[in-house]
Simulated assay, not measured.
Amino acid sequence: MDKETSASAFRAVIVLALICSVLVAGAAVGLRPLQEANRKLDQKKNILRAAELYQGTGDVEKLFQQVETKVVRLADGSFVPPEEVNPAEFDQLGSLQSEETSRKLSKEEDIAGLGRREKYSLVYLVKKDGRLDKVILPVRGKGLWSTLYGYVALSANLSTIIGITFYEHGETPGLGGEIENPDWQAGWQGKQIYNQQEEPAIQVVKGQAKNTYQVDGVSGATLTMNGVNNLMHFWFGEHGFGPFLERYKGADKM
């Protein structure tokens, strides 16, 4: 092959590569709104699943109309007026990028391995006849290989677990990945978050649970289970939703 032919072939490869790059980039940009819509839809499904309002069928958007989304100030548990922080527009994880809307956790505080904690959080309320029926709270924390993202639904007494879901993680399939198994998640139903001293007492244990504060563990997934324990104790403690739940415990309206 002479030099001119080699140069022409090289130019053709470069042009083809550039065209492919433009097409891939264009497709990524064009699909981004659809991907974001699918992500939000999946989150709504998991919120509904945790609250036992979705069993795999039905119009998710229609079912979600019974859920009221609000923003709370984690420091004191108070609701934030929508004119201050609009729940429909609030990017909770995105707020971690700003020092104005998040804070660095100390080593002693950071039992869930978060690094930073947002100042505001979304909460999801389900009411019946104007009275509080269920509260669904977003939780997250480090497992063995990844950050675990999920939702915990509580009954109106703000201590009894109705359901739990984990919708995103990178744990080992068949081991830590069992946190997304509906059968394992069902074991959380009816468990109590707080003991008589109003301290977070819920715990995943090795073997079988022996009381209302314990959940069966997954064999061979000790570190992932430890991560679940840590995130539950963080988010239901004083640096998570503890102030919010304490403020409204005993109230039937929010």
Rank of each mutant, 00 (worst) to 15 (best):
D2E: 08
D2L: 15
K3V: 00
E4R: 08
T5P: 03
A9L: 14
R11F: 02
V15I: 01
L18P: 00
L18R: 01
I19N: 07
C20Y: 04
C20A: 12
S21L: 05
A25Y: 06
A28Y: 03
A28T: 14
V29C: 11
G30K: 13
L34G: 00
K44V: 04
L48K: 13
A50C: 09
Q65D: 03
Q66T: 05
K70D: 01
V72H: 09
P82N: 09
P82D: 01
P87H: 11
P87G: 11
A88N: 12
F90C: 12
S95T: 05
Q97I: 14
T101K: 14
L105C: 08
K107G: 10
A112V: 13
L114Y: 14
R117L: 05
E118Y: 03
L122P: 14
V123T: 12
V135E: 07
I136H: 04
I136T: 15
G141H: 07
G141F: 02
K142H: 11
W145V: 12
T147A: 10
T147C: 01
A156W: 00
G163N: 11
G163R: 09
G163I: 10
G163T: 03
F166E: 11
Y167S: 02
E168N: 02
G170F: 03
P173L: 09
P173K: 07
P173W: 06
G174S: 05
I179Q: 07
W184M: 03
A186S: 05
G187L: 07
Q189W: 00
Q189M: 15
K191G: 11
P200S: 12
I202H: 05
V204N: 08
N211V: 11
Q214R: 07
S219H: 08
S219A: 11
S219C: 10
G220F: 11
G220K: 06
A221W: 10
L223A: 13
N226D: 01
N226E: 10
V228F: 14
H233A: 13
H233T: 05
F234K: 13
W235K: 11
G242Q: 14
L245Y: 01
L245G: 00
E246T: 12
K249L: 03
K249R: 13
